[in-house]
């Protein structure tokens, strides 16, 4: 008998724990066969970072604080990128994931324009890897070609593998503990040294992230928890919750600086 669970994947990002180390960026790069971001690509503003650490500065030197905001695809429940694709290259699957079908993509780039979070990437050039990196490509992930849009998948290849090994072979329930124990967590979650990223099933009572989503949905607007979702007011219904940073040391408002 195959155990069927209605998963709805989600993520929680604890900004209080994020140190801006960019570990997740590198992990994602390696896991998902992203082209190497050379200086050229950065200068052209065409670098690939399925997850990026946005960095903002608060205050003025020397009294400054850096604020970090990791942004990956929010897997919006009401994704603006989906209805605009003329060929259904991006659509919602039954696990709450916004998936991108590389083979179907024609490259109109309408979805990139319409993604509120700016997390979709276009292959302007044919992606290449240096000779010595050819063998590190992940066999589970398609290598994209030029003219195709791509973005964070919540590491769907790992989720699929988890389903096959845990649910289908071992017939046990898939939850965040089994996933973490067997290295099936998304690469960025796995790599985060401070555990700022948490991944799990929004529908599974036992999952750690379940509580955050419950809270958000139940006390919408007047919750005293730290949870919020970015640019929620546009109505995208994202599947990623951010937990507000707790400022232990308040910024000094120095009139005397400089």
């Amino acid at each position: 008998m195959v155990i069927k669970i209605e998963h709805k994947w989600g993520m929680v990002v604890d900004l209080d724990k994020c140190t801006g180390c960019n570990g997740c960026v590198v992990a994602c790069q390696a896991e998902n066969n992203l082209p190497i971001n050379t200086k050229d690509l950065f200068m052209q503003k065409r670098a690939f970072e399925w997850i990026r650490i946005e960095r903002y500065w608060e205050g003025e030197f020397p009294n400054v604080k850096a604020r970090y905001l990791p942004v990956m695809c929010q897997h919006c429940g009401n994704a603006p990128c989906e209805p605009v694709c003329p060929v259904y290259a991006t659509y919602h699957n039954d696990q709450g994931l916004n998936v991108q079908v590389y083979n179907r993509c024609v490259g109109t780039r309408y979805c990139i324009n319409n993604c509120t979070y700016q997390v979709r990437f276009f292959n302007f050039w044919e992606p290449t890897w240096p000779e010595r990196l050819q063998n590190q490509l992940n066999p589970d992930v398609t290598v994209r070609t030029r003219g195709i849009t791509e973005k964070c998948t919540f590491c769907v290849q790992r989720i699929r593998r988890a389903e096959i090994t845990v649910e289908r072979r071992e017939r046990t329930k898939l939850n965040d503990k089994t996933m973490a124990a067997r290295n099936f967590m998304p690469a960025c979650v796995q790599a985060c040294p401070t555990n700022a990223l948490m991944f799990g099933d929004q529908n599974n009572q036992e999952d750690k992230i379940h509580g955050y989503f419950e809270e958000l949905h139940n006390h919408e607007g007047h919750s005293d928890s730290r949870g919020y979702r970015i640019l929620e007011e546009i109505g995208t219904d994202p599947s990623v919750i951010y937990l507000k940073k707790v400022d232990q040391f308040k910024m000094e408002h120095s009139e005397s600086h400089g």
Binding site: P83, V84, C85, P86, V87, Y88, R104, C105, V106, G107, T108, R109, Y110, R146, G147
Partner: peptide, 28 residues
């Protein structure tokens, strides 16, 4: 789009191989 041959199954609803017709919700 950069890859013109692909536009075929965007303009003409003929994509029998995949059984998918163009997305009529899209302004494109």
């Amino acid at each position: 789009t950069g890859r013109p041959w692909r536009s075929l199954y965007w303009f003409f609803p003929y994509d029998f191989a995949r059984g998918i017709f163009p997305n009529i919700r899209s302004p494109l």
